[in-house]
Amino acid sequence: MAPSRFTARITADEGATWSVAAGRYRMLVSRACPFASRALIVRRLLGLEVALTVAIVDPIQDELGWRFTLDEGGRDPVLGIRYVRDAYLAADPGHASGFPVPAVVDVESGHVVTNDFATIPIDLATQWRSLHRPGAPDLYPDGRREEIDEFNAILHRDVVSGVYEVGMARSQADYDRAFTALFSRLEQLDARLASRRFLLGDRITDVDVHLFPSLVRFDLVYHGHFRCNRVKLVELPHLWGYARDLFQTPGFGDTVDFDHINRHYHLVLDESNPHHLLPGGPDRTLWLTAHGREELGGAPFGDGTPPGPPREPVPPAGRADA
């Protein structure tokens, strides 16, 4: 993941340079990218689909990066751009340190405001409250924010980035260190989830959103393609049940595009797949099997309600569900 070069905060302060306003911003995302997936989940859980529209890129990049070839004419219909990089260069013509997603763009100017994948979900949960749907969960509650930040830092180090440390290691020592940290953490999480439905208790918080995109990619991509192969997710019983519980919760699984994930990782990040062979999995029905996590009590949304049907439903999967 390229560094977050654009780190402005979009806030509830009406006098701020970048203040929250419905329709003012557009978020550029890839359904293949776990960092963008986190932002997509938060946006959906909070009911911000109308207030903050999204532009979804093709999972296959070319030499210029993420592109809008899924849209008619190969251009985003709102911003009129062909590549994510165009919004970065509009903000800074000399920018050359990568053009990652998610990125939030000011619609009027076409400039990237922020690509800070760590703070975008937090700001959606806190600064955008006036635009949240009724019954939206409090993903970043007062009194638990320090705990959430600390937990997210651990998850990011050992799991979210840890799988990339394993998969992109260039020495045996680096691989062994990251591999050990990753599976030690997964085993700790599996044990933790034996007695609690969600990571911090009886309802979802930002830490659950933070971890889920890595879990949904684990057996499909990280286990084989990234050599994270001590065990599969399905072999960690509590973590696998937890992952299915989240997947079946509105706002989580209905944002997952297995086809985009499959094609991006195996056809773009192809160093270990030189013949560009596309795996036939996963079997999505496995994610819909009973998980039994209700027996632990609690409810994903606490006293709130689930979001309604998605405004941008994931298209039926092709090869990935074969």
Score class of each variant (00 low, 15 high):
278 L>P: 03
123 D>F: 07
40 L>S: 14
91 A>V: 01
161 S>H: 14
139 L>G: 08
130 S>R: 15
220 L>G: 10
210 H>S: 13
3 P>C: 04
310 P>V: 10
300 P>N: 07
223 H>L: 02
221 V>M: 02
161 S>W: 07
297 G>W: 09
206 D>Q: 15
229 N>D: 15
107 V>E: 06
134 P>F: 07
65 G>H: 04
86 D>W: 02
19 S>L: 06
304 G>E: 10
102 P>G: 07
139 L>Q: 11
281 G>T: 06
254 D>S: 06
321 D>W: 05
74 G>M: 06
136 A>T: 07
1 M>C: 11
129 R>D: 08
181 A>Q: 12
40 L>V: 13
32 A>S: 11
175 Y>F: 14
139 L>I: 12
26 R>S: 00
249 T>H: 03
99 F>S: 02
183 F>E: 00
97 S>C: 02
322 A>C: 08
104 V>S: 00
242 Y>I: 05
117 F>C: 10
252 F>Y: 00
47 G>T: 10
226 F>A: 03
161 S>T: 11
171 S>L: 12
318 G>Q: 11
52 L>M: 13
299 A>I: 03
187 E>M: 10
63 E>I: 13
118 A>G: 05
288 L>S: 11
305 T>Q: 13
67 R>G: 09
43 R>K: 06
86 D>L: 01
251 G>W: 04
111 H>G: 00
162 G>Q: 05
230 R>Y: 06
10 I>D: 03
181 A>S: 03
57 V>T: 15
137 P>M: 02
213 P>H: 04
218 F>C: 01
209 V>I: 15
179 F>L: 13
292 G>V: 03
220 L>N: 14
68 F>V: 07
18 W>I: 02
74 G>I: 02
4 S>A: 15
9 R>W: 03
29 V>C: 03
203 R>L: 05
234 V>L: 09
194 A>E: 12
145 R>K: 14
184 S>I: 05
213 P>G: 05
311 R>Q: 15
10 I>Y: 08
296 L>R: 02
247 F>H: 14
304 G>N: 02
283 D>M: 05
12 A>S: 15
24 R>I: 07
105 V>M: 06
232 K>F: 09
256 V>A: 01
257 D>T: 03
102 P>C: 08
2 A>R: 11
235 E>S: 12
27 M>V: 06
34 P>A: 09
272 S>A: 14
176 D>Y: 06
318 G>M: 12
107 V>N: 06
35 F>I: 00
142 D>A: 15
295 E>V: 14
151 F>P: 00
298 G>D: 00
126 T>S: 12
142 D>K: 11
182 L>N: 00
268 V>E: 03
229 N>I: 05
186 L>V: 01
191 A>Y: 01
42 V>F: 08
78 V>Y: 00
187 E>G: 00
295 E>R: 15
104 V>T: 07
161 S>A: 13
80 G>Q: 04
42 V>I: 08
48 L>N: 03
156 H>A: 15
214 S>C: 06
29 V>S: 00
72 E>T: 15
100 P>V: 05
121 P>V: 05
259 D>P: 09
298 G>T: 04
186 L>I: 04
114 T>C: 11
273 N>M: 01
246 L>D: 00
12 A>C: 08
182 L>T: 04
250 P>T: 10
165 E>R: 15
132 H>G: 08
